[in-house]
Design a protein around this nucleic acid. Structure first.
Length: 369
DNA sequence: GTATGCTTTCGGC
DNA sequence: TTACGGCCGAAAGCATAC
């Protein structure tokens, strides 16, 4: 493959920064964006927090109650997520980013990969100038800071962006990949979480360099073929994944926390019904058809259990969605003793509805069954 | 053996 | 001391078809 120049642009502490833009007085205070479950006054978790809050140990994933304790007397501001507002901001930023890329791939609401090889004519210093320009444009148009990593592939671009934040800009040229990666702690490698990190320690691997030098065959034995190969390649800075626009939404899900843990069918069905309605709205709005329907229970011990069914033909019928979701939860509750805490409905195998019309003309559909 | 499809689980943001 | 969301894509694991 030709040498590539890939950028990863990551909006800093995105939700909290959006709130700072909306109300600049927040900038001097700890800001904590919360997902309230509605179960009790402060039940729920922190979605994200600004860097002042983080300096007190408050960050994504911790319970709201714990965050309040840590920030007592600190003049902290707790706000509920406003997803609609953040989405509008995100959309405008993504439009800016896309305009500077040969190839563009959005990841989540606050991140995107840009392949810029042609745009900068293969010159790394041009890529750095482009990144500075992008940062300036996002700051002047939206008042937001972001962190940008530049590298020869997605993996290095992403890790470079993570290396300096917030408001960072990190370049890792092809010749600098090893000196960048090898000293980093193994937990910094994308795909190495807490469990894998512990397992690696027992193998005597504590830095990415240690992993890079480890025998590929041994890694495959320990982690399986695929993952072993990934760890070997990634630690050596190798990543051939192309920057590629997402072509179709893959699934739509809605999840909600029950007022209290219960196996009561009526309570659960009522909740499921509401989730189906939300999904149905989205399916119609986006003009989609779905073919798989699934439900998930998060039990009171936080264990996760799911069931799904795939239809013969895609549909957009709310009736069908509700009936199957109901069947799935009834059957699951009969088979299992778990006590549900949260319930989720998901549809997948999505297609655009006008796709049906196209299919009549599609030579594929003329094949003998 | 490979390709493909389906169900369930995992983990990033 | 505990406390614990709402999404999404994709991998894992298995079955079936050729």
């Amino acid at each position: 493959m030709q040498d590539r120049i890939v950028m990863l642009a990551d909006l800093d502490y995105f939700y909290a920064q959006c709130e700072e833009v909306r109300n600049p007085a927040l900038r001097k205070k700890p800001v904590v964006i919360c997902v309230y479950s509605g179960r009790t006054e402060d039940s729920g978790v922190v979605s994200t927090a600004n860097y002042i809050a983080r300096s007190y140990g408050v960050g994504p994933g911790i319970p709201i109650y714990a965050a309040k304790r840590k920030l007592k007397e600190k003049d902290a501001v707790f706000l509920p997520v406003d997803h609609i507002f953040y989405s509008l901001v995100s959309e405008r930023v993504m439009t800016i980013l896309k305009g500077h890329a040969d190839l563009f791939e959005q990841v989540g609401i606050d991140e995107a990969y840009l392949e810029v090889s042609n745009k900068v004519m293969g010159e790394l210093d041009h890529a750095v100038e482009l990144a500075k320009m992008i940062k300036t444009e996002i700051r002047s148009r939206e008042g937001l800071t972001c962190s940008i990593g530049i590298g020869p592939n997605k993996l290095i671009a992403k890790m470079a962006a993570d290396f300096t934040k917030p408001d960072g800009l990190t370049l890792v040229g092809l010749g600098q990949v090893q000196q960048f990666l090898f000293p980093l702690e193994i937990s910094r490698l994308i795909g190495v979480g807490k469990r894998t990190s512990e397992k690696m320690q027992t193998l005597g691997i504590s830095t990415i360099g240690d992993l890079a030098r480890y025998d590929l065959g041994q890694l495959m034995n320990v982690f399986g073929r695929r993952l072993g190969r990934y760890f070997h390649d990634a630690s050596n800075g190798i990543d051939y994944r192309p920057v590629k626009a997402k072509e179709q939404l893959q699934s739509i899900s809605r999840i909600s926390t029950l007022k209290e843990d219960t196996r009561d069918l009526e309570t659960i069905e009522e909740k499921i019904e509401g989730l189906c309605d939300q999904i149905g709205d989205m399916v119609l709005r986006e003009d989609l058809l779905f073919r798989s329907i699934g439900i998930t229970f998060v039990a009171n011990d936080l264990s996760i259990h799911s069931r799904s069914r795939t239809l013969q033909a895609p549909t957009n019928q709310l009736r069908v969605l509700k009936k199957i979701a109901r069947d799935l939860i009834r059957r699951f509750l009969n088979e299992s003793e778990i006590i549900p805490r949260r319930v989720e409905v998901r549809v997948a195998n999505l297609k655009r509805r006008h796709g049906i019309q196209v299919r009549l003309m599609d030579p594929e559909s003329n094949r003998a069954g």
